[in-house]
């Protein structure tokens, strides 16, 4: 059997004496499109950041394709939350997308024509090619998210982590992003998405991890995305959520 894209075992992360993630196990088979869901403060972003080595765990182990992350960086693409960067930074759309190539270039090497071509290609895929020379502060929220996505595409990774890619984007952009994610999966990539909208989980994803500090469930959407598990993850709030029509 093929090696899992991600194996997390006994992962515990604490902020001071307060656990953010508590003894979490998670296995993600290669080639899945997975959502991480859970209420605010459930540790979704923390989970991604600890897999990427951005947060040191108090205990536990993370393997990416069977090896520690530091050895597998080149296989991993990352899309942080849109709000985590300063969009007034003096740089162009093309420059930001080319940052996705920095990892493959390594220290000190300069950007060249091939990076530029790759970035323009990725911008084309997300429908933003005509914005290449724009200053990034002139973009709308949905456009910013597309630029971030293009940046992840040029990383040409096997495994992608995306932190709330649908946050504050319009319906057209959401549709475009989902199509792109599904294309990635069809190409054999693994995609892990921190997601908020429970309604769309069965439609968009084939695998789901439900977190609330502890792991509630992890598996194929059809098996584990059940009322019972949702109630466990969200407590009483889920009745209210599923009673609501459309998006919240």
């Amino acid at each position: 059997m093929a090696v899992n894209a991600i194996d997390v075992t006994d992962l515990t992360i604490a902020y001071k004496d307060k656990p953010v993630l508590w003894d979490v196990d998670m296995e993600v088979p290669s080639g899945t499109l997975m959502a991480i869901v859970g209420p605010n403060g459930a540790g979704k972003t923390t989970m991604i950041k600890s897999i990427l080595g951005l947060i040191k765990p108090a205990a536990g182990q993370v393997l990416v394709y069977g090896k520690p992350y530091a050895e597998q960086r080149h296989l991993v693409g990352y899309v942080p939350q849109r709000g985590s960067v300063d969009w007034d930074f003096p740089t162009s759309v093309l420059d930001v997308v080319m940052m996705g190539r920095y990892g493959a270039l390594g220290w000190l090497k300069r950007l060249g024509a091939s990076e530029r071509a790759a970035a323009l290609d990725a911008l084309d895929k997300v429908g933003m090619k005509s914005f290449a020379q724009r200053q990034i502060s002139q973009l709308s929220g949905g456009q910013q998210q597309r630029v971030f996505l293009a940046r992840a595409l040029v990383q040409d990774a096997q495994l992608y982590f995306m932190d709330e890619p649908f946050q504050g984007v319009d319906a057209t952009t959401e549709r475009a992003i989902v199509t792109l994610l599904q294309e990635l999966r069809s190409a054999g990539k693994t995609v892990v998405v921190v997601h908020h909208d429970l309604q769309t989980v069965p439609e968009y994803f084939d695998w789901v991890t439900m977190l609330n500090v502890r792991r509630i469930a992890c598996g194929p959407v059809g098996d584990v995305f059940t009322d019972q598990n949702l109630r466990k993850a969200y407590g009483g709030k889920v009745a209210f959520l599923s009673a609501e029509n459309g998006k919240h």
Partner: peptide, 18 residues
């Protein structure tokens, strides 16, 4: 290049090993 990335997006810089 490293200064630019670490200033604009420190999380990505760290994830890429910079």
């Amino acid at each position: 290049k490293e200064l630019k990335l670490a200033t604009f997006d420190p999380a990505l810089a760290a994830a890429l090993g910079f």
